[in-house]
């Protein structure tokens, strides 16, 4: 287990919140990564540029900060779980119209009942999944 650093967690969280706030105040857009990436992949011409700009900004800034900080990224899941997880996260976030950013950071911020419900459901299911894989199957 890595050491818990509440200050980095709060600062990092605030940067994410600031990104979401800027996008809605200036552009009137929801900073939901699944909605933005999904819309980009749908090939919607009218919204191609701003969505691409967001994704490029995210990936480039992450690349830069990964190299500037000593951040570790530990992917414990094996390949079968990587494939299953990718399918479930991709399809589930589109079916449920949002993910941790769209529902969690943006939807909950405007008090949306749909987003609060979705967030409670995916947190509960994810916690149950971790419990089952780590403590029931001994994975």
């Amino acid at each position: 287990m890595q050491t818990f650093d509440p200050l980095s967690a709060l600062i990092g969280g605030a940067l994410i919140g600031l990104g979401a706030a800027l996008l809605v105040v200036f552009n009137g857009r929801v900073a939901g990564v699944s909605g933005i990436l999904g819309g980009l992949l749908d090939g919607e011409r009218a919204n191609l540029a701003w969505r691409a700009a967001f994704v490029i900004g995210l990936a480039a800034a992450a690349l830069l900060s990964l190299n500037l900080t000593a951040a570790t990224v530990e992917i414990a899941a094996g390949w079968p779980l990587i494939v299953a997880g990718g399918l479930l996260v991709g399809a589930g976030s589109r079916l449920g119209s949002g993910c941790t950013s769209g529902h969690g950071v943006c939807g909950m911020a405007r008090g949306s009942g749909r987003s609060i419900t979705a967030t409670l459901v995916y947190f509960s299911v994810a916690a149950a999944t971790v419990f089952a894989t780590r403590h029931l199957m001994g994975g």
């Binding site: 996260v89 459901v121 995916y122 947190f123 299911v125």
Partner: peptide, 28 residues
């Protein structure tokens, strides 16, 4: 639809620990 999507998403998130934002960030 919202509930079913959130259930599938939670399942995948719990299996790997990646949701869409971090999945793109981790490409780096």
């Amino acid at each position: 639809r919202l509930i079913a999507g959130a259930v599938l998403f939670g399942l995948g998130w719990g299996l790997v620990g990646f949701c869409p934002g971090p999945a793109l960030a981790a490409l780096g």
